[in-house]
């Protein structure tokens, strides 16, 4: 049944994937199997995206399928030990109110086993600092869609430095308009302009790949 779930998930057969997951989750050890299989499927979708075979439409559909399945799977996992690769504070930087890219990345990052603390959109620089102090993440993800976000990221990183927290964390920036040049300009550790690359690099920064 795990094989069928994996295949229908990766093939974007939403109805079939949800049906199998519902069945599997009721069996002995089923919830863990569903979780692991869906994670594996999301990883495969990300791989297909990076290979140019899948597109954003598939990432969005996969994220939606994952959330749908987790809704009835996670309550059955209470008490189970779920491994985490590490914690990431994630937000769209001050001045930018876009969320689609951040949300696609978030579900893929969570599916990969990263514990994501989503601090929202238009996040003031100081709020990143507070979240770092509170959650002690290994990783901070900053998103922006519009070009204004570039300097906002730069200032956020400066404020994190001034708070003496820069050396404790790795920073990845993401969004439609970021690039290698922008990464160097703002002083981040990695950049991604798509969610699949973002998750792969986040895992690398966590030393898990």
């Amino acid at each position: 049944m795990r094989e069928e779930l994996l295949r229908s998930f990766v093939d974007m057969d939403e109805q079939e994937a949800v049906r199998i997951a519902r069945e599997l989750v009721e069996t002995e050890g089923g919830a863990v199997a569903v979780l692991d299989t869906c994670k594996e499927a999301m990883e495969e979708v990300g791989r297909l995206f990076e290979a140019g075979e899948y597109f954003l439409s598939e990432l969005i559909a996969a994220g939606d399928m994952f959330n749908q399945i987790m809704e009835f799977t996670l309550p059955k996992l209470q008490g189970e030990e779920v491994a985490s690769l590490g914690t990431m504070v994630l937000g769209t930087v001050q001045g930018d109110v876009h969320n689609i890219g951040k949300d696609i990345f978030k579900v893929m990052a969570e599916a990969s086993g990263i514990n994501v603390i989503d601090i929202g959109i238009d996040v003031p620089h100081e709020k990143f600092v507070e979240a770092i102090k509170e959650h002690k993440p290994e990783l901070v993800g900053m998103c922006c869609l519009i070009t204004l976000g570039v300097d906002s990221m730069k200032r956020t990183i400066e404020v994190i430095k001034e708070a003496g927290l820069r050396d404790d964390i790795k920073i990845i920036i993401g969004g439609g308009r970021v690039s290698q040049a922008v990464m160097e300009h703002v002083g981040a550790d990695a950049w991604a302009d798509d969610a699949a690359r973002g998750v792969r690099l986040s895992k690398e920064l966590l030393g898990k790949e």
């Binding site: 570039v150 690039s179 922008v182």
Partner: peptide
Amino acid sequence: IDVGMVISS
């Protein structure tokens, strides 16, 4: 013209 370059170069 890559705007990212104009901002950061």
